[in-house]
């Protein structure tokens, strides 16, 4: 492989990495908000799925993408609210509630889709007006000829859809919210030691609901991206475990926003190369099977969880319903 070709391949991989990472970033940040406030969320998958469906369906029906996105976020919020009611108000098991949400999403998307569009659970393909468009950043075409940096700017950084840039902006925003605002301070405290917030005269329940609902909005965006940007229609189970990869990325990032971005890009990169180069031949010596690349995010997460490489310590009050005590 000559240098020019290699560069082209690298550009292609980088571009694809970004495309497939976006869903992970939305879901991972959703999980981050929820778990930082002490609520485990294994229902990321379900919330994204329901949003992917409603975004595509409403977008198709109305012919207007923003109605679709609003519907997707609303659907995801309803699920988030169910999770909140079950795990905050009724102090139920947060994991079981998450499992229920995933079941409901898998079922409802197909049942409603099937009755609505008669296409076995798929939505009809979306036309251009019903999808997000690629955005060409300023000077992308003029700068393309600049060696090396030009193509990187034009092909990797420019030319993505709106939600890609939204995701990239939400990372610093999340960091800022968590570490620079009163809201973030209290939210993190609620996940670490709710009693400290309670004795300070602040409502634990309010902050936990806020976190769970933010997670709902972010999952809504993730789902919307999936069916109207990465894809062009809703397909059955189209999240395909991405909610769980995002959960893995969250652990990998040790519940911190910038690291979450890195982890999502890394896991996205693994997905990209498993798509582009199924079996990688290492110096002609042996072949890395595609399944290994696919499983790598999960293997890495288990290694991190086991504390073999830098222990991942979850928020201390995670998974525990808060019961006021003296």
């Amino acid at each position: 492989m000559d240098t020019a070709n290699f560069f082209l391949q690298a550009l292609l991989t980088a571009d694809m990495t970004i495309r497939v990472s976006v869903v992970l970033i939305f879901a991972c940040l959703a999980g981050l908000f929820s778990e930082r406030a002490g609520i485990f969320d294994i229902g990321l998958e379900g919330k994204m799925l329901i949003s992917a469906f409603f975004t595509a369906a409403v977008s198709y029906q109305t012919g207007y993408i923003w109605y679709g996105v609003a519907a997707g976020i609303a659907a995801s919020l309803v699920f988030a609210l169910i999770h909140g009611v079950a795990s905050i108000t009724f102090r139920g098991n947060q994991l079981i509630s998450g499992v229920a949400i995933n079941f409901l999403a898998s079922g409802l998307t197909v049942v409603i889709g099937h009755a609505w569009f008669k296409k076995g659970g798929l939505t009809p393909p979306l036309s251009d007006a019903e999808r997000f468009h690629e955005i060409t950043l300023p000077f992308a075409d003029t700068l393309r000829d600049v060696p090396i940096l030009g193509p990187i700017y034009a092909d990797v950084i420019s030319g993505h859809k709106l939600l890609v840039y939204v995701a990239m902006l939400i990372v610093p925003l999340t960091w800022w919210l968590l570490y620079r605002t009163r809201f973030g301070l209290r939210l993190r405290a609620v996940g670490e030691n709710p009693a400290s917030v309670d004795t300070a005269g602040v409502s634990v329940v309010r902050y936990r609901y806020a976190a769970v609902l933010i997670a709902g909005v972010l999952c809504g965006l993730g789902g919307a991206y999936l069916s109207t940007s990465q894809g062009a229609a809703f397909g059955k189970e189209m999240t395909a475990g991405r909610g769980f990869i995002a959960l893995a990325a969250l652990i990998f990032a040790k519940w911190r926003p910038w690291y979450a971005l890195m982890a999502c890009l890394l896991f996205g990169f693994l997905e990209a190369i498993s798509n582009l180069f199924p079996n990688i031949n290492v110096f002609g010596l042996f072949e890395i099977p595609v399944q290994f690349t696919q499983a790598l995010p999960y293997i890495l997460t288990v290694v991190i969880l086991a504390g073999f490489v830098g222990k991942a310590i979850p928020p201390r009050a995670g998974g525990e319903p808060y019961v006021k005590e003296r």
Partner: peptide, 11 residues
């Protein structure tokens, strides 16, 4: 009604 209604009931 698609068979996935079962998933809804299970959920």
């Amino acid at each position: 009604i698609s068979k996935e209604v079962v998933l809804v009931i299970q959920g």
